[in-house]
């Protein structure tokens, strides 16, 4: 089951204002795995993620989600593709005027025909899954950064997507909260078979959860493999420098 390709990125080039940040990037994400996009600051992790979810128009290439191209998709095709994944943004991006439960219920309200009591119950269930059951009536401003991120995961899962995209889940969290979030990601992957695509550079978290990873450098893929394997057998100097935190070697590479 793990061998089936769920996302295929084919020769993707992307960037801003005519300047390419990624050129000719190709890789696959397999069903049910936790896939990590690694890279230094400014290496294009977020750009790649945002192109995969169709937020920015790519310059060229294809992003196939279960065989359908996300790049340039419009209308019904785009809607069908959007239903297949959920996204957690770096800062959580919860709506500040709504409680956590209302944030989770929003996609249910707009995209399904479920009656009100069903939506409320489902929102509670999703919040319970991320361990926030008792905080359903809190506003985002009344909760901590870790809780906001977990609630954002609950909102991303509201419509039962098969894929979750997470942009820097560990950013700005203390080690314990970050580890809790890692546990949650592993549990969701194990219990619900959700495929994760995570942009991150928190190495501790990456070793703990990542099944496979790519390392971005200079607009291309410097290495591909399991994070632990990349750390122990780095294929080149830059990869070694990245995983061992050696700036001198990185400058030389």
């Amino acid at each position: 089951m793990k061998e089936e390709k769920i996302i295929e990125v084919r020769r993707l080039s992307a960037g801003y204002a005519g300047r390419a940040i990624l050129s000719d990037v190709s890789f696959d994400v397999r069903q049910g795995e936790i896939f990590i996009i690694l890279g230094g600051s400014g290496s294009g992790k977020s750009t790649l993620l945002k192109n995969m979810i169709g937020l920015y128009p790519a310059m060229s290439g294809e992003v196939l989600i279960r065989g359908e191209n996300m790049i340039g998709a419009v209308g019904a095709v785009r809607e069908r593709l959007l239903r297949q994944f959920g996204v957690m943004y770096q800062g959580g991006a919860l709506f500040g005027s709504m409680t956590l439960a209302e944030n989770v219920a929003l996609p249910l309200e707009e995209c399904t025909r479920l009656p009100r009591e069903a939506r409320a119950l489902l929102a509670r269930l999703k919040l319970q899954q991320v361990g926030l059951g008792q905080f359903a009536d809190y506003l985002p401003s009344e909760t901590s950064g870790g809780m906001v991120k977990r609630a954002a995961v609950a909102r991303a899962m509201a419509l039962d997507p098969g894929i979750l995209f997470l942009d820097e889940p560990s950013a700005g969290l203390d080690p314990i909260t970050s580890a809790e979030l890692d546990e949650l990601i592993r549990a969701l992957s194990r219990d619900y078979g959700i495929t994760f695509v995570i942009a991150s550079h928190e190495l501790a978290s990456v070793y703990a959860i990542g099944d496979r990873a790519i390392l971005l450098e200079n607009g291309g893929i410097a290495a591909e493999g399991s994070p632990v394997q990349l750390r122990d057998n780095p294929p080149n100097n830059y990869v070694r420098a990245f995983f061992r935190r050696e700036p001198e070697r990185a400058r030389a590479a």
């Binding site: 119950l121 489902l122 269930l125 039962d160």
Partner: peptide
Amino acid sequence: GGAGFALLVA
């Protein structure tokens, strides 16, 4: 899916 579990719980 999640909605099915919500129904069972209800």
